[in-house]
Design a protein around this nucleic acid. Structure first.
Length: 290
DNA sequence: CACCAGGGTACCT
DNA sequence: AGGTACCATGGT
């Protein structure tokens, strides 16, 4: 078994924060870096002063799959420069300059966020670990960690039972994941077709799926597709926007939606991720109410 | 023990 | 359109 290594030069890429920022759930610390499984490949990443080093099995013809996943072509300074010029966004950027958005596989992203509802990130990671081990295809036995498995396909989950999925600790989310997996597996929904749609069309398709509401739809649009204005609003982001921008009187849901849709600019999704990270690290272990 | 977690759904006004 | 109970599970 042979490992292949490659160096990537990149500035302002906060690798650790990005991989643990609640977008993707399969990265775990390993040595001086991080490891995960992308598609059918085991991957290791380690930050260096000039960028980072990547290692993988199965010599790839090229590294485009990793460049795309890590979004190395994004000019993060231009993205940050597009944020609204207000003290709250400045503080969020200062808290972690270099936080990035990943570009994930649509099915893995969709399934992962169906499992995310009212769960803490560590628990989502645990559920997905069980799901992959029990339903995903094992990687090549010559891999670095022969027990690692790919994220299960929609067809693999569609072939499971609700009780079997509940055995992965996902509770009431099991019937949602099962029903959505069946719709994807039988072709009732084509996740690839969403790439050519407007954000509104793509969101409408996602909202048809069981267990997918506005928040999860926005997560998939932002983390798996190319919709930079998608803006997932979870409890942390809602708290951030309300406390920072509406300190006196809490806004009506309609007012809040209108503000979010207009205030954060063409890269609103990045702004959201900075606010999420800022809020979560500032108030870590201090309790939700601060 | 009470409360919370990258929510969605059914059902109420 | 806006509000609420309920849905499992594990952590604090």
């Amino acid at each position: 078994m042979e490992l292949v290594a490659e160096f990537f030069a990149v500035k302002n890429y906060a690798l650790a924060e990005t991989l643990q920022s609640g977008q993707a759930f399969r990265w775990k610390p390993s040595g001086a870096g991080w490891e995960s499984v992308l598609q059918k490949r085991w991957v290791y990443l380690e930050q260096t002063p000039e960028g980072f080093e990547a290692r993988t099995t199965h010599p790839p013809e090229d590294w485009d799959w990793l460049r795309n996943y890590l979004q190395l072509g994004v000019d993060i300074d231009a993205v940050i420069a597009s944020f609204p010029d207000d003290p709250h966004m400045k503080a969020a950027v200062e808290a972690c300059r270099g936080l990035r958005l990943l570009r994930q596989d649509p099915w893995e992203c969709l399934a992962s966020f169906i499992l995310s509802s009212t769960k803490q990130i560590v628990q989502i990671q645990q559920i997905i670990r069980l799901l992959c081990a029990r339903y995903g295809s094992p990687l090549d036995p010559s891999a670095v960690h022969p027990h690692d498995a790919a994220f299960p396909t929609a067809a693999q989950i569609a072939g499971a039972t609700e009780d079997g999925l509940r055995g992965c600790k996902m509770g009431f989310r099991a019937p949602y994941l099962l029903a959505t997996a069946r719709r994807v597996a039988d072709g009732a929904v084509d996740l690839e077709a969403l790439r050519g749609m407007t954000m509104e069309e793509a969101e409408a398709r996602l909202l048809e799926l069981p267990g997918v509401g506005e928040k999860i739809a926005q997560c998939v649009l932002l983390f798996a597709y190319d919709f930079p204005r998608a803006f997932p609003v979870d409890v942390w982001v809602r708290r951030a926007v309300v406390e920072l921008y509406f300190p006196r009187r809490r806004p009506s849901p309609a007012r809040l939606r209108r503000f979010i849709a207009t205030h954060f600019g063409p890269h609103a999704g990045y702004a959201q991720q900075y606010l999420f990270h800022y809020m979560r690290t500032q108030t870590a272990r201090r309790g939700p109410r601060g």
